[in-house]
């Protein structure tokens, strides 16, 4: 096509009109985007009573927990609250908090001349909510993650049951649901979902109770043998207890930074 001045002016005119329409289109586009934003991010907030901390930790005073019977109410409180199934067959067992012999809980710390009570009494063990959690690194779906307050939590909705986290955890704190857990729960607590076949589970430091201003269930049931609090706060009770007592932690040499301390 032969281009003439006339044609050029025509095209320039049409283009100018087109450009002037752009702000109008932009306005439509942003109105649309705003609407989506309004629906996607409504206001959400935490409960005002929620307990907050920067570094939750648990101190276990084993002097007060010398027997299997002493551990039982604590374990029971947790299992009831979280619908942890009771499965007899050890291959399919689900454990959030349980009793373990010293030599298994603290390998490397056992010795020939340990006091009898240390050798034979059960020690309460649970997820250590490590400062540097290997399970979080291993999880391919980010189902296991570390919250800002240090709790190592599981998003059960995302767990695909690959069990990398179980291989990564040096404490055996995680259990896999080989069976549908519902049939092994005698009394369901409707206030906490169960889990399903094919997901991993573990202790959640009672995140759902902290959110409404309550201490973890095990602490509440322990009659003072368990102390929970924020180790980042020098005025907190856990810090005071840690200052006054010699404590040990499980497999500290691995560098995971366990947040469960034992007074022995």
């Amino acid at each position: 096509m032969k281009s003439s001045r006339r044609n050029f002016l025509k095209i320039a005119g049409v283009s100018a009109v087109g450009l002037s329409a752009k702000p109008v289109l932009d306005a439509f586009a942003t109105a649309d985007a705003d609407e989506h934003a309004a629906t996607a991010t409504p206001e959400k907030a935490s409960n005002k009573k929620a307990l907050t901390g920067k570094r939750w930790a648990l101190v276990i005073n084993t002097h007060k927990l010398q027997t299997k019977e002493a551990l039982e109410p604590i374990i029971e409180a947790c299992n009831k609250l979280h619908n942890v199934p009771h499965i007899e067959n050890e291959r399919w067992e689900i454990k959030w908090i349980w009793g373990e012999e010293f030599k298994h809980a603290f390998p490397g710390k056992e010795d020939t001349f340990l006091p009898e009570h240390v050798k034979h009494n059960p020690f309460l063990v649970l997820c250590n909510h490590c400062e540097n959690p290997p399970c979080v690194r291993a999880c391919p779906t980010k189902a296991t993650f570390q919250r800002d307050d240090g709790i190592v939590l599981m998003d059960f909705h995302r767990c695909i049951g690959c069990r990398f986290c179980m291989a990564a955890c040096p404490y055996g704190s995680r259990s896999f649901n080989f069976r549908d857990p519902r049939q092994f729960i005698t009394e369901q607590n409707p206030d906490f979902p169960t889990r399903s076949k094919g997901v991993v589970e573990k202790c959640n430091f009672c995140a759902e109770r902290l959110a409404v201003g309550k201490q973890p269930a095990c602490v509440e049931a322990s009659g003072g043998a368990l102390i929970f609090g924020n180790v980042d706060d020098p005025a907190s009770e856990v810090r005071k207890v840690l200052n006054k007592n010699f404590t040990i932690r499980r497999k500290q040499g691995l560098g995971t930074g366990p947040m469960v301390f034992y007074i022995v």
Binding site: A38, E43, K44, A45, S46, A50, F145, L153, D155, P190
Partner: peptide
Amino acid sequence: RDTVVRTGERTYTNPDGKQFNMSLSTG
């Protein structure tokens, strides 16, 4: 579910200012 599990926030305020407990089955 993402908000509750990931951020710990459990209260939802709808555009009318009414508050809800962000939960499917509890409460």
